[in-house]
Design a protein around this nucleic acid. Structure first.
Lengths: 209, 209, 209, 209
DNA sequence: AATGAATGAGCCTTCATTCAT
DNA sequence: TATGAATGAAGGCTCATTCAT
C-alpha cells in the first residue's frame, strides 16, 4: 500500500546528508532523549529540510534504529573472540582473559555514553526498543558464553546459561555505574575488583594464581 | 509568571483524591510508560476530572516526581538492616546473611516491578530524578558497606567502598533482569548462584562452609 | 488501543457546536469538495478550535458520513410508502402514483444540490464513500420495488429487479440533470415526459388512460 | 508571475514522452483516483523523471485536464451517426436502431471505464471540466435529437428536446451503473429492457412489432 | 533537455493545560 | 472546590514543485 521510497545514498553528497542527520539526531537524543526530540528538530539541526529527513528515513524510529545498529556494530567488533582455539596446548592465564574482557566492556562504555544511556532507557521502557537492543545484547552474551566454554576444564561453574547471565549483567551494571555516573571511582581498581570477583566465581581454585 | 496555586491537601478527602490520582498514574505509567499516558487518562482512571488533577499537581511531570520519590522512599525503607548488632558474640553464617540480603532485594523488585522499570529508564533523562536515584543508590551502597564492615574479620576484601558498589550494582542488575524481563530463569537457581559468587568474592575461604 | 473519546453532545450548547461544525463543513464541501477542504478550515469557519472539531468527530470522514446520513434520512422520509395497502379494492390511478413518486425525487434534489453533487462525486470515485451512499440508495430502490409489486396485476414488466434498477437510475439521472445543471428545462414538462415514459414501460396498455 | 515554459512537443520523441506520462496517469488515476495519485508516481510509472513531468505539464491538474479532454473527444467521436441518411425509402426497424444505439453507448462505457468514473466525479468540482462535460452532453443529446427527427413520422413524442435529454441521461445512467458497478446484472437483459422502455416511449404503437 | 535531490507548506491529529461555569 | 469543554501549540508526515547539475 505504501508508496514511500527511502533513498539509499550512493553518492558522497547523499551519504554526507544522511550522516548529518544521524549526527544531529545522536546529539539531540543524547541531550534530550528520543521522545523529547522531534523529527523537524533533527532536520533543522542537520541543516536540512524535513522532506529530506523523510527521504532518508521512514520515520524517527528508523533513524534511531540505525544509530543503535551502528553503535553496537562498532562495540561488538571490539569484543575479542578469545579463548576458542587454544583448548589444550598452551593455555593463557584465564584471569587475564577475564580482565581483558572487562576492560573491553569498560572501553565500549566510554563511547557515546549519553546515547547509550538513552538506549538503555528506551529499552527498559518500550518493548519495541528492547527487542532492538536485545538482538545485540544476546550477541554479546553469546560471546561470554563461548569464552567460558572454551575454558570448560578450568571452571567450577556448571550452569553456563545462568552464570553467563549473571556475569553479563553484573559487568554491565558496574561499568554503567562507573562510566555513566560515578567518574569518582578509580577505574583500575574497579577492574581489579571485578576481575577478582568473577575469577573466584568462575575458575576452579587450583587454577587461580 | 505562574500564579497557580497547588493545593496541599490537609483534609482526609483531599488526601484521598491525591492518592487516587497517584495510584491511577502508577498503574498507567507502568502499563504504557510516561510518554504514552495522558493526564486526562490519569484523571479519568482516578474517577476525577482533569481540572482536579491540575489543582493537585502543577503538571504531569510533578505527579511523576512524587511517584518516584515515594517509590524510592519505600525502597529505601526496605533495604534490610541485618547483621549489624551481633558483632562478636554469636556470629551467624555470613553466607546466609548474604543470601538473605539477596532475597530481600529480590523482594523489593517484585514490588511494583513495572513502575520501577519505568523509573530506572526516565531517571536518566531528568536531573531531578537522577538525584533521587543517586540518593537511593548511595544509601543502599552504604547499607551494604555497613553490613560488610560488621563482618570485617571474616572478609577477604579490603576496599569496602569499591566492593560495596560492585556488590550493590551486580545484585540490582541481575535481580532486575530476572524479575522484570526473563521469567524463564529459575529464580532459586539465580539466588544460589549470586550467593555463591558474592560469598567467594567477599568471605575468606576458611569461613566458607 | 485507541483512547479517543468522541463527545456526544447532550446540552444545548454542545449540540449547537456540533451543528456549527456540520454546517461549516456542508458549505465548504459543497463549495470546494471534500478533498479540498481541511479539518482546520472547517473548525475555523465554524468559529471553533481544531481540538473541538476532534472532540466531536473522529475525523473528517466521520463528519462527512454524518452529513450524508442526515441528508438521506431527510430525503428518505420524503419518499411516500404508497401503494401497499390497497391492492384489490379501490385502485388509485397507477400513473398518478408514478407521477407523485417522480415529483418527490425531484423535490429531494432541490435540497443542498451542491452537497448532493459532492456525494455523487465521492461515491463514484472511492469505494468507501460509495458503500456509504449505497446503503441509502438501496433503501430508495427498495421503495420503488415495493411500489411496483403493490401493483403487480397492472404491470407488463416481469423482471422487477432489472426494471427497478433501470427506473431508479433513469429517474435519478434525469432529475440530476434538471436540478443540478440545466435549470433551463421546464420541470413540469420533464415530469410529464418521465411519467409518460415510465408508465408506458411499466403499466399494461389496458390500464393506461 | 510564473515564467515557466511548458514545452509543446513537436518532435516524435517528445510527443512520445508526453503520451507515456498521460498513459501512466490514466492508469493510476483510474486505479486510485486523482487525489491519491502523486505526480512523482506518475513520472515514475512513465519511466521518466519528475522534472520531465513538469516540463510537459504545468501541474498535475493540467495533465488531468488533457486526459479529460482526450476522453471526451474520443467519446464524442464514437457517438453513432446512424439512421440519418435513409429517411423515406427503406426504413429500418426503428426498434433495432434504438437497440443498436444503446449497444454503442454500452460499448463506449466499456472503454476506459475506470477513468470515466473518475471523470464523471471530478467534473463536478472544477468548472473547467464541467464545461467539457457539458459539451459532451449537449453534443450527445443533439445526436439523439437528430436521430429522433429523422424518424419523426414513426414517433409519438413531440417535444424532441426534452425527450432527447431524458433518453440520453437515462441511457448513460443505466449503462454507467451496469458497466461500472454492478456486474451482477445480465447485460443483454438490461439492453432488452432499456430498448423496450425507450421504444414504447418514443415509437407509435402501430410501428412496434 | 533531462534529472532527481531537496524543499517546505500544509495536512491530520494529539494532548497538556486553561478557565468559565 | 470541582468540572470538563475548549483551546491551540506542536508533532509526524506527505507531496507538489523547484532548481542546480
Amino acid at each position: 500500500m505504501s508508496n514511500k521510497e527511502i533513498r539509499i545514498p550512493k553518492q558522497a553528497r547523499s551519504i554526507e546528508k544522511k550522516k548529518q542527520l544521524k549526527q544531529a539526531a545522536l546529539i539531540l537524543f543524547s541531550e534530550k532523549g528520543f521522545h523529547n526530540t522531534s523529527s523537524n528538530e533533527i532536520a533543522k539541526k542537520a541543516g536540512l529540510s524535513i522532506g529530506t529527513f523523510y527521504s532518508y528515513f521512514t520515520d524517527k524510529t528508523a533513524l534511531y534504529e540505525e544509530l543503535v545498529k551502528d553503535l553496537y556494530q562498532d562495540a561488538l567488533a571490539q569484543i575479542p573472540d578469545i579463548g576458542l582455539e587454544n583448548e589444550d596446548d598452551m593455555i593463557p592465564d584465564p584471569a587475564e582473559l577475564i580482565r581483558s574482557y572487562i576492560q573491553t566492556i569498560m572501553q565500549i562504555h566510554t563511547y557515546m555514553p549519553a546515547f547509550q544511556k538513552e538506549i538503555t532507557s528506551l529499552s527498559q521502557q518500550y518493548e519495541e526498543f528492547r527487542v532492538l537492543e536485545e538482538k545485540y545484547r544476546s550477541y554479546a552474551a553469546e560471546k561470554v558464553l563461548r569464552l567460558l566454554q572454551g575454558y570448560r576444564k578450568l571452571l567450577r561453574i556448571t550452569d553456563f546459561t545462568t552464570a553467563g547471565m549473571i556475569i553479563q549483567n553484573s559487568l554491565e551494571a558496574v561499568v554503567h555505574e562507573v562510566q555513566f555516573y560515578h567518574t569518582s571511582y578509580d577505574k583500575d581498581k574497579v577492574v581489579d575488583e571485578l576481575t577478582d570477583m568473577l575469577c573466584r566465581y568462575v575458575i576452579k581454585a587450583e587454577y587461580l594464581k
